[in-house]
Design a protein around this nucleic acid. Structure first.
Length: 281
DNA sequence: AATTGTACCTGTCAGC
DNA sequence: TGCTGACAGGTACAAT
């Protein structure tokens, strides 16, 4: 579910509410979600008790809660994870797997229907133990993500551009929805081999990555099924999608029917006219 | 090294 | 009305 814009929206919604608050206790209903300390709810709880929350950061699709004493709580929402800030008296919904009790009568609750979420509690010096986080590639909205950097990353790789965009070790934070929207804006077919892109196409791709992710954040993320921010509010970017989930509908630019096809195991939505495959030259 | 398949879960929806 | 199977915003790991 949540890709970079959704995770960033959650971060922005939670940070002002959590900054300066302390975690007085933790309820763990599904210990297997805790990857570090592995499946160990007791150690997890003990190390969180009484810790002040200094700051919330985001890296790719990971949220990092910087705590007192160099502890960092790292959460990945995967497909259906939600982090919700609410009054301690609110009824606990089904699929609520962790509850962080705060010192202001409020809770931060981790809710996850599919139980794919990943939770880690590490000291700052041990952050690299979280492999998925340590291996993340460039942060796409940072200024150091340039056309030169993108060309360098592509190198002689000949995988499909859609698959390339989804690899977190190259660019951190793009998922299936934004990958399709990015390729539509860049007018590139999802199956185009990435090393076959012209310099002009790479520049279009770079701009599309930055544009679509920025717009996604501006509209508070894409709420199709499950996604909500830290206050339970839906995003609005689903109203601004051009291709994702629109197979059979006319392209908003040319009227051609949007197609859907599996690319690298993931459904991909694209306009066969606007995103025509290059002819071999 | 690069790529593909499978596993992890529950809920929803289309088709019968 | 069920029932069944396919599918879902992601990634870790195994197999090739």
């Amino acid at each position: 579910m949540p890709e970079l814009p959704e995770v960033e929206t959650v971060r922005r919604s939670l940070e002002p509410l959590l900054k300066g608050k302390s975690i007085i206790n933790v309820e763990v209903n599904l210990p297997k979600l805790i990857k570090i300390p592995f499946n160990n709810a007791e150690v997890f709880k003990k190390n969180l008790q009484g810790k002040l929350i200094d700051k919330i950061e985001r890296r790719g699709k990971y949220l990092l809660f910087l705590l007192e004493d160099n502890w960092i709580l790292v959460i990945h929402l995967r497909m259906t994870g939600r982090l919700l800030y609410m009054n301690h008296d609110c009824p606990v919904e089904k699929h609520t797997h962790l509850i962080f009790y705060l010192d202001n009568q409020q809770d931060l609750r981790f809710h996850d229907v599919r139980q794919f979420g990943l939770i880690y509690l590490v000291k700052k010096n041990d952050l690299q133990e979280i492999k998925g986080l340590a291996n993340l590639g460039v942060e796409p909205l940072n200024d150091d993500f340039t056309a030169g950097k993108l060309i360098e990353m592509i190198g002689s790789k000949k995988q499909k551009v859609k698959s390339f965009l989804l690899e977190q070790k190259y660019i951190a934070g793009i998922g299936n929805i934004y990958a399709d929207e990015i390729l539509f804006q860049a007018k590139i077919h999802p199956e185009e081999p990435v090393n076959n892109l012209t310099e002009k196409q790479i520049n279009m791709l770079l701009k599309a990555i930055k544009d679509r992710l920025t717009e996604g954040i501006r509209y508070g993320g894409t709420s199709i099924k499950d996604y909500v921010d830290g206050l339970g509010n839906t995003g609005q970017f689903q109203k601004h999608l051009y291709v994702y989930g629109k197979s059979g509908e006319p392209c908003l630019l040319c009227g051609t029917q949007i197609e859907r096809k599996k690319v690298g195991g993931r459904n991909s939505h694209y306009c066969p006219h606007c995103q025509a495959k290059k002819v071999n030259t």
